[in-house]
Simulated scan of single mutants.
Amino acid sequence: MIKVLVLHGPNLNRLGKRETDIYGQMTLEKLNERLVSKGREWGIEVQCAQSNIEGELIDFIHQAEGEFDYIILNPGAFTHYSYALRDGIASVDIPVVEVHLSNVHSRESFRHTSVTAPVCRGQIVGFGTLSYELALAAISAWVQGSADDHKG
């Protein structure tokens, strides 16, 4: 069975409470439940973790090697400046899909650049919590061989 680690970065523990006009009403707990359920439907084991601490996210990524086949990562604000997180992603042989709830390209200019995206397999932005499901769907398609296997 394919195993996917979903990593939520800083402030995502506040989903459903924080800036709901941007990030929506769904809590992180409900989102994780939905992802585990959707994964089960598609024959994918999904495990989720969240941290507000950059080093913990890097540790999760390092520890995933040999345990998980893919990572879905919402790096939150670390997206825009964390070269340490970027290097952590680059240091493992696991495809990573970067996701964002909001369309970071239509927001403040400092959000327009991702230092993590260049070392990720792909990036999905702007679809709210559906961004995570779209990443899971992409992984499912890659595994089934029904998606273009272009590595970017």
Score class of each variant (00 low, 15 high):
N103K: 04
A84R: 04
A64M: 07
W42K: 15
I72T: 00
G16Q: 06
E19P: 00
L35N: 01
L12T: 13
K151H: 13
E41F: 09
S131N: 10
S114V: 04
I94W: 03
C48M: 05
L31Y: 11
I2K: 11
R121V: 02
L31H: 01
S91K: 09
E41C: 08
E133K: 01
P118S: 15
L134E: 05
H80N: 11
G43I: 07
A138R: 14
A137F: 08
V115L: 05
G122D: 09
F78A: 07
H112F: 08
I71F: 09
D148G: 12
V119L: 05
V97L: 15
E56Y: 09
R18I: 12
V6G: 12
E19Y: 00
Q123N: 09
Q63T: 14
H112M: 07
V125E: 05
G145L: 12
F110W: 14
G43W: 12
N32L: 13
E98S: 03
D149G: 15
T79D: 04
V104L: 04
V119Q: 03
Q144D: 15
G152R: 10
K151P: 00
D148Y: 14
S106C: 09
A141V: 10
I2T: 14
Y23L: 02
Q47Y: 14
G128R: 06
C48I: 10
G24H: 11
Q63E: 14
R86T: 01
G9D: 08
G88E: 03
Q50I: 05
D149M: 10
A138H: 07
V119Y: 01
F110Q: 12
D149S: 15
V115Y: 01
L31T: 06
I72H: 09
C120P: 00
G122A: 15
L57Y: 03
F60L: 13
Q50T: 10
L35D: 07
G16K: 03
Q25F: 14
G126P: 00
P75V: 11
I2Q: 11
I139V: 10
V97Y: 12
V119T: 07
Y81C: 14
A147I: 05
V99E: 03
G128I: 12
G55A: 12
T79W: 04
L73P: 00
G9Y: 15
T113G: 05
S51D: 05
L15Y: 01
V115S: 03
V36R: 14
K3R: 13
L73K: 01
